[in-house]
Design a protein around this nucleic acid. Structure first.
Lengths: 244, 244
DNA sequence: CCAGCTAGTGTAAAAGTTACACTAATATGT
DNA sequence: ACATATTAGTGTAACTTTTACACTAGCTGG
């Protein structure tokens, strides 16, 4: 039998691109690193995968340890394995993207890998010099979110359980980086029958209060089984789009 | 500084799900393994990534060595890293899918890893007991192809340079596993202006010969820059679909 | 020259998409 | 208590896209 030992000298990590939505801004969670390499740089919450740990499990563990997050939407994006991307040796990393309700987030990096944890607006990230190839990972994950949000109702993972249609529209506008027509957006979203009108109103706002809705996950799964597709298109006009 | 040595004990491989289209059948290329583990099993062409090799480079090398394929469409899908998926140790694999023109393929596995190389119809794969977690990888890659083919003109990678509209339709039907309406399919495809009418005819067929077309890659890239999207939808009717 | 086969074509009805502007309801400040 | 500011909520007509559907054209081979 051949000897494969020389191949068993690499390591792998998971990195999470964690999206959150705060009022009108799409954000991602970064940590300020507290160890080499890239000590003091901002980067994605990520760490080595343990020898006895599945990839998804590792991603969830890191999410918990470095960001105090639990039970969130998580999806693998792809792996990044450029030779030389890590100074300690050959390290390939598996990128995940994750969607969280920002209000549920309590910054609790209960270990010493991160000295600080903070939300950054996706739109303001260009200027930041991130650790490793994390900037590329963020770009790809954002692109994937943009694609996914058109055909899957994952946007709801970013909103509180109860939300208004305007909040939902703002969320789509942030992700798609475009403006949507209010009437068309509402028509389309409501026609999908995936929202439950809670018969409750917003409170404490200095204007006409909006109705509150929640996402009907059960109905969505029913639709999925019947081969339904949650779909969103762009408008033909350059300056406006519509969630169709 | 911490010691990370214990993490540097794993290996990774690349595996290729290679799709080809032969007349009316979507196929994938498998090898009959000639070494442990899973000696004598059919499996995906894949191998260990070398320490100094990028992932994409490794995928292309393997494609070349195990299947004699060069210069083909290649795209990373995702990584599979279940603990225990490889008996030699911790090995995660990066799955790629690849689209090739089946006629260009000459089975030339110029090393001893594979004792045989063969095309299998995707539809008949269910019964085959593949090595490792390769069955799952095939399923996911096929699902991805199915999704991709609706929004990107990658189908052309599977056809010869010159093809007829009927061939193109059959290709779509194989991938989408559905029937398409001839008139609507043609209307839609031609309205995209991505095909060049070659003013040539099929020869040597025992029926009215069809016109030959080729894909206009240049125009496609122009469209991409202008934010165009190659889009395909399913029909509302259960038994038929249309490439829209 | 007939049989068999695939290529190629148009239209009307239905569905979906788009653009667009005003009234309703609340909180706050005076 | 009234005016102001602010966001919520709503309908329609023009246009575009999608869908269903059936016959003639042109070649080969016997």
């Amino acid at each position: 039998m051949k000897n494969f030992d020389s191949y068993f000298k690499s390591a792998f990590t998971v990195d999470n691109v964690i999206f959150g939505f705060d009022h009108s801004d799409l954000k991602i969670l970064l940590i300020k690193r507290n160890e080499e390499p890239y000590d003091d740089y901002w980067g994605l919450p990520g760490y080595f995968v343990r020898p006895d740990e599945d990839l998804d499990t590792a991603a969830r563990r890191v999410l918990k340890q470095l960001a105090g997050l639990d039970n969130v939407y998580l999806e693998q994006v792809r792996s990044f394995g450029q030779v030389g991307r890590h100074p300690f040796g050959r390290v390939i990393t598996v990128a995940y993207f994750s969607l969280v309700k920002i209000a549920n987030f309590s910054p609790r990096p209960d270990n010493d890998v991160a000295q600080e944890v903070r939300w950054f607006s996706v739109s303001k990230l260009e200027t930041l010099d991130l650790a490793f190839d994390h900037a590329e990972m963020v770009r790809e994950c954002f692109a994937k979110l943009k694609r996914q949000v058109r055909t899957r109702p994952i946007g709801f993972e970013l909103l509180p359980k109860k939300f208004t249609l305007t909040e939902l529209q703002h969320l789509y506008e942030s992700i798609l980086e475009t403006e949507l027509d209010k009437r068309n957006f509402r028509k389309k979203i409501l026609s999908m029958n995936l929202l439950i009108d809670l018969d409750e109103m917003q409170e404490g706002v200095a204007h006409r209060p909006a109705k509150l809705y929640r996402f009907d996950r059960f109905k969505y799964e029913e639709f999925l089984r019947d081969g339904f597709s949650f779909e969103v298109k762009e408008s033909k006009r350059k300056d406006k789009s519509v969630l169709v």
